[in-house]
Design a protein around this nucleic acid. Structure first.
Lengths: 256, 256
DNA sequence: ACGTCGATCTCGAAC
DNA sequence: GTTCGAGGTCGACGT
């Protein structure tokens, strides 16, 4: 893994370093005084200040101020770059097609550059997503309620979108399950309402709506109660354990 | 503005530099080989690899891989930090309360550290937001249609939320305006429908629904037509010009 | 290619 | 404090 730093380079030197690194698809970190403008889905300008500019190996760009999680300006992966020194400023242009958007960074002073051809093969795993909750419910339907039997997942319901899980309860009622990973808000209740109503237009039997999530917001609770929807709390940890168990089981099946 | 870099520091040196910089609320950029785990709203692990870790002056943390716009792990502003060298690893812990979340970064090797007490006072301005479109419409109601007269903006309609702009047309009909900055999707149509229906329960006169945005999605167009809602295309540039004009006008009023 | 939906969303404003 | 909506959202998945 190559790694190089340049302290207080001239703008011409900086331009050369950045051009070379872009060609080799290296990670580039520039610290310096710059102004930025953007033109695309919206337009923005950022006046002079000291910032951290990161150009990644996939052609994405981040302009970070000293505060805030989010970059003040950016460009998603896949940009085409142009670097030049013009009127005493180092201009880095990152252009994206579809949609057509341009980010221009003008450095008046480059304080530090770091370039590296780094490799990062480390695996990233996130434990419980909304899809994981669905998988956990399909694996262990009793997470919704005792006697619940899934019929299908993600059933298309015309303009109303998809049902997270469709099933039957122990008394033969249709059950529409709406899953939220964190908290049931108003939206989830309205969505479930749309699904249930769309289903009621198609079939002629009792339909129950159940909201499944770790928690529900107060207002959503009222809206749900008003529509006779039920709320079933679920634990992310429990879902994670159900999925891990399932994985181990499948693995042991394979081993035998 | 102070600025310091450290190349290939020992883990103990690195810990000392980071601790000191955290105390002074400096911007810290660390490049090194690390593994990361996170526990909070979800849980995640990231195996060993070379990454760029940024700790900002407001206590936010970003862990960036060589590709992707988004950080692989992060922590929003306001974290409490703990730095220690343990079992041959430099551990940086960033804890957040509300919700309780912990990010642990374990460095096996630190390749480069950059610390700086940077200042960045440059103003950032984005030209046209959704609010700007509303302001532009309130300033120049003909953007919606000739003869449109706004009555109020952001009218509360119970559980249906807020109306972007409520007004009257030239023939005395009530007009509900739903604004989207980029494109009218299904959601906007459903939202407008909720507003119109909520309003119909309250007043007994004709109500029109108008969707205002630079463009409309095909499916949304059908849904809108089915509900007799109209779509009024609007240009972001035009809004920007209307607002700029208004600003200049106000300024000149002040000057006189 | 386009549309839909989730996100450790983040961020800000309003209540 | 909570709730809600917007975002240049981004990113993933399905058609």
């Amino acid at each position: 893994m190559s790694f190089l730093t340049y302290k207080n380079p001239s703008l011409v030197e900086a331009a050369s370093v950045i051009r070379d690194a872009l060609e080799k698809h290296m990670l580039i970190v520039v610290f310096g005084n710059c102004r930025v403008d953007y033109e695309g889905r919206a337009s923005s300008t950022l006046e002079w200040g000291n910032r951290l500019v990161i150009i990644k190996t996939d052609g994405s760009v981040l302009v970070h101020r000293p505060i805030g999680y989010e970059p003040v300006n950016w460009q998603p992966p896949g940009c085409i770059f142009h670097v030049e020194v013009l009127d005493g400023e180092l201009k880095v242009r990152a252009t994206r097609l579809h949609p057509r958007e341009t980010l221009n960074i003008f450095f008046g002073e480059v304080i530090h550059i770091m370039v590296s051809s780094l490799t990062d093969t480390g695996e990233f795993s996130l434990y419980v997503s909304e899809l994981d909750i669905k998988k956990a419910i399909l694996t262990m339907p009793s997470l919704v309620e005792e006697g619940f039997k899934p019929i299908s997942a993600e059933k298309e319901l015309g303009e109303s979108g998809f049902v997270d899980v469709l099933g039957e309860d122990s008394r033969g009622n249709l059950v529409v399950v709406e899953i939220k990973r964190v908290s049931v808000g108003k939206d989830a209740v309205f969505q479930l309402e749309r699904y249930v109503k769309a289903l009621e237009r198609r079939v002629n039997r009792p339909i129950r709506g159940i909201l499944v999530a770790p928690e529900i917001q107060k207002e959503a609770q009222l809206l749900a109660a008003h529509r006779k929807f039920e709320f079933k709390p679920i634990s992310l940890k429990r879902c994670y354990e159900v999925l891990k168990l399932e994985k181990t089981k499948k693995l042991s099946d394979f081993m035998v």
